[in-house]
Every structure is written in structure tokens, then in C-alpha cells.
Amino acid sequence: MSRRTNVLACLVTSTLLSLVIAAPAAAAAAAVSDWDYVALGDSYSSGVGASGQTGLCLRSSNAYPGLWNTANSPKTYRSNACSGATTATLRSGQLSGLNAETDLVTLTIGGNDIGFADTVITCTLASDSGCASAVADALVKVRDQLPAKLNATYADIRGKAPNAKVVVLGYPILFDETVANCGVGGMSVTKRKSLNKGAVELNKVIAARSQAAGFTWSSVEDEFAGHGICGTNAWLHGLTVVPPTNSFHPNNAGYRYGYLPALNAALG
């Protein structure tokens, strides 16, 4: 074979290899428009705290699932997420939209199983020691009860959607710990540290169980860093009177600049 023929052969081979290597990436980018996407979970997925909440489940198109749907236009989108959901109610009432054709599932779950909302309210009203005790009680549930509940939930999701990419998102660290005064109730720095520590431990358990199930874990702790309640640029509501359900949930900025980037990062 002549030198010229060798050069041409190398060029053709290199071109073919480039096309083969590029094809999967191009296919993956194009595939989003063909995805069937189902959002599951609790109030942090339904959109409590965002504008435009409707229905008994308080769903909003300004929650991260709705924002992702608007930005990416998948073939189908359905949100079954519901305020107040636990692992048990998710398993009994939210899985009907899943099937072998489902391409993407996202969820937040676990906070209500350990009485997260009640713990925050207790800390708002109780002493520093009373808050610490309430957080300690919640962490017993995190360690002793939640892993098995998450395992069962993730197994049910995989069984219903065997081919889906499942992204499990965590919870934000709620409070800024640097300012002296925080809210109408005067949530002390000590209380805030107790609650934030509890959120870290909750996220660790959810991360471990979701990864053990073969799902993609996406923490939102980094995204919300510097944007805690009582900080100068909070992405979460503090104690809210009207509507009270918004209390300690992300606001529009939290969903758009906290949760949505965390989901995008998980999807690559």
C-alpha cells in the first residue's frame, strides 16, 4: 500500500471513529424530547412555597419538576408529587403513572416520615434544649426506621419503572447560622444549628439508600449554601402566616436556582 493510500485510510478511519464517538452524545441530547417524565414525592417536589400552587396537593409549575419540563419539553410530563407525602402514601398513591416506558423519575421523600415539620415547629416554640431533644427524637427515626422505608419505596419505583433514570434529591439546610436574630419567634443560633445538623443526617441516610438502590443522588446543600432562612438572600420561607403551609419551604428562587440546577447536574 502506498504512503498516499495509508494517509487516506487513516483519515477515513479517524472520521468514522469520530462519528461513532459523537453519536451517543448526540443521541442522548436529542432523546430528552422523547422522554416520559414523572415527578414523585412530597411538598418539596410538589412546589409548596412557590407561586401558583393549586389543588389539595399544592402543586405548582414553579417547582423544580415543572421548571425542568418547561425548559426541556419532554414527550410527556406528569407530577404525582403531593404535599404531606410519606414513603407509605407515595407507594400507595403516586406510582400509577410509572411503567416500562417511563424514562425519568424524580423525587424528594423522607422528611415527613420523621416528623420534620413538627420538629421545626417545636423548635420555633421550645427552648434550646427542647429543640435539641426534638431533633434527637427525629434522628432516632432517621437511623432506625427510615432506611427500611426508603428501601421499600425505591424497590417499588424500580419495579414499576424498570428502565427509568431515577434522581433522588435531598433537602436544603434550612437556616443561616451567622446572623444573631432570626424570625418572629427569635429562632436562636443554637436551635438553628440543631435543625441544620438534623437535616445533614437526614440527607446522609437518603443518599446512602438511594445510591444502594442504583439511583442517582443529588444533594442541594451546595446550591442553597448562603441562602438559608434569615440570611440576606434567603431562598426559603421562614415562619409564614399566610399561607402557613409555605413555612420552611423553598420560594421561587429556591426552586429555580437551588433545585433545578441540582437536577440538571444529576442529569449531566
Rank of each mutant, 00 (worst) to 15 (best):
C123Y: 08
W68M: 11
A126E: 11
I121K: 11
N6D: 02
L67N: 05
T70G: 10
N69Y: 07
T190C: 00
M187R: 04
E201P: 03
M1R: 15
S61H: 06
C182F: 09
D34A: 14
G231R: 11
T153W: 00
L267V: 12
F175H: 10
A265W: 00
N151Q: 15
G130D: 01
T245W: 00
S45C: 11
L263Y: 01
G254R: 08
D156L: 05
P244T: 06
T153L: 12
S247P: 12
N251W: 02
R209W: 00
G110L: 09
A88P: 09
C10A: 15
L90T: 12
L104P: 12
S60V: 09
L195E: 09
G55P: 01
S127L: 04
K149E: 14
P65E: 04
N72Y: 04
D36C: 06
G97F: 07
V167L: 02
L67E: 08
A212V: 06
S14Q: 04
R59S: 11
L236D: 01
A134V: 10
Y37H: 03
A126S: 15
A199C: 05
L95A: 06
T76H: 09
D156E: 15
T106G: 09
L8I: 15
W35E: 15
S83A: 15
T216H: 04
E101I: 03
M187P: 00
Y64P: 00
G115M: 02
T15Y: 04
A31T: 10
V20P: 00
N246H: 12
G111N: 09
V220L: 02
R143N: 10
S127D: 09
S73C: 04
N196E: 05
A63T: 07
A30R: 15
S60K: 08
S188V: 04
G214T: 13
S92Y: 01
S133D: 14
E221M: 13
D137W: 01
T102I: 09
Y77G: 09
P250Q: 01
S210T: 12
I206S: 05
C182T: 14
A27C: 05
G47I: 06
I114Y: 03
K141Q: 13
Y171C: 01
L17G: 14
L16A: 15
A155W: 02
L107A: 13
C230G: 01
N112L: 06
S247Y: 07
A50G: 06
L95Y: 02
L98S: 12
P244V: 09
A50I: 06
R143D: 13
Y77Q: 11
I206K: 07
D118T: 12
Q145S: 14
L125R: 13
S46I: 09
A199K: 05
L267F: 06
S210W: 05
D34P: 02
V38I: 14
K193V: 14
V200F: 07
V168P: 02
S61R: 13
N99Q: 02
D156Y: 00
T5Y: 01
P74E: 11
A28G: 01
I109F: 02
T245I: 07
G226C: 07
A22G: 00
G41H: 03
A25N: 10
S96E: 08
A136E: 13
K141Y: 01
G84M: 12
C82W: 07
